[in-house]
Design a protein around this nucleic acid. Sequence first.
DNA 1: CGTGGAATTGAGCGCGCTCAACGAAGGTGG
DNA 2: CCACCTTCGTTGAGCGCGCTCAATTCCACG
Lengths: 235, 235
Amino acid sequence: MGITASSNRLFDCASGGGKQTPARSTTLTYRRGQQIYGEIDPPDHWYFLCSGAARNYALLADGRRRIVDFLLPGDYFGFRARYRSFAVEAIAQQTEVVRYSRRSLEAAADGDPWVAGQVREIAFEALARSQARLLILGRVTAVDKVGAFLLEMKARSSDADETTLTLPMSRYDIADYLAISVETVSRALSELRRLGVIRFAKKNRVLLLRRRLLEDGVDRDTKPVSLRFEKTCAA
Amino acid sequence: MGITASSNRLFDCASGGGKQTPARSTTLTYRRGQQIYGEIDPPDHWYFLCSGAARNYALLADGRRRIVDFLLPGDYFGFRARYRSFAVEAIAQQTEVVRYSRRSLEAAADGDPWVAGQVREIAFEALARSQARLLILGRVTAVDKVGAFLLEMKARSSDADETTLTLPMSRYDIADYLAISVETVSRALSELRRLGVIRFAKKNRVLLLRRRLLEDGVDRDTKPVSLRFEKTCAA
DNA sequence: CGTGGAATTGAGCGCGCTCAACGAAGGTGG
DNA sequence: CCACCTTCGTTGAGCGCGCTCAATTCCACG
């Protein structure tokens, strides 16, 4: 919960030149469910998430919600093209973000090529994340999708422990992220637990026991460790 | 076929400053199926597609292919983060791309803030495209996915006509793009034709007859115009 | 301790995948 | 020019996975 990312803040203290004006920034704190910006808000701010978590989502015509990105400590967000925009809401009870005026940040980038290069890297990183997610969504079965999701979250999480993974989002959020139903998410997690791939410490703390299986694609030919054994074990 | 985009080439002739070195560029022509760059190639070039079309894809562990982006005239591609990379192949018989050395292009961006800003815009544009595609993949039914795909292609196509859409890619490419099977793509297109939403001029030329239906989501409550009538009409 | 949302599990059904066959289109070599 | 072949595109039959509806349990609130 208390994971923060006060490092990595590129824009306040830019590099060598010294001629640039540091971008003006404001630190804001949101509670669970609060909106950081809306779909129709003009894209005149960029954001950096320090602690907590947030969801980047869109509401579809049929009322469904589609989450296109989870924002975790260390992530930048808010840079949007004009024609398509999303909204961002805090997930964690205590979500801290640094807000930059887009104008002043672009001025900083114009004044310092190093800052501009960092912005490029951030954008390319976000693009790579988005395209990697396309691969996850393209997985065939729900177990594969959820497994790949756990790996992605583990790769992005700040948990030091090799096997521990803390999920800041609800099952509903996971469902809207993977474009499957809540029930299927729950069933897939139970299936992974039954297969001995994961174990739950708490509701939202997962232990990755057999990571290799997740990476290779669980569905391929994974058999439960022992059907009789796991039943006695689960009790 | 002969659609080109020789405009919009930002990097050869940069703006006001004059101090920047124009990026070195090479124009290359590829035939259908030829690889422009591979998954393991170092990301030391950026590209601009002038004419034709290309697919940006990854091969999954199970042998499936996942297309994460179609490149059309006017699109830039090749900027990749390190940890995840894809390959790009030409689709059209005659695909022309301009290749820039990454080093010289970044030098040009460092020397000219306007160029750097354009690169930012291009990256944000690509990100928005990718996230919009996540929404398409999140659609429920195959008809909805294919319908949304047609709209996306129409929005990006160079066809001047309001209703005409030329698809440069095969059904297999569409299937790998939407993460559904070829047969389902074919069935969905036939269904849309049956509903009177589209019509085929040739195999790859589509007329969007009732665009509103596509935008609202075809599945909602669309009935065929007339079941008896369409059967006689199809003949 | 009571309450309401979150999470899990079950039953039944429909959509999309798989396997299969066939037709159409384009390319090659004789 | 035609015969041949490969690849692409379409359509059908059957089945399995995930969605929907529903009930129950779990947990975090006040």
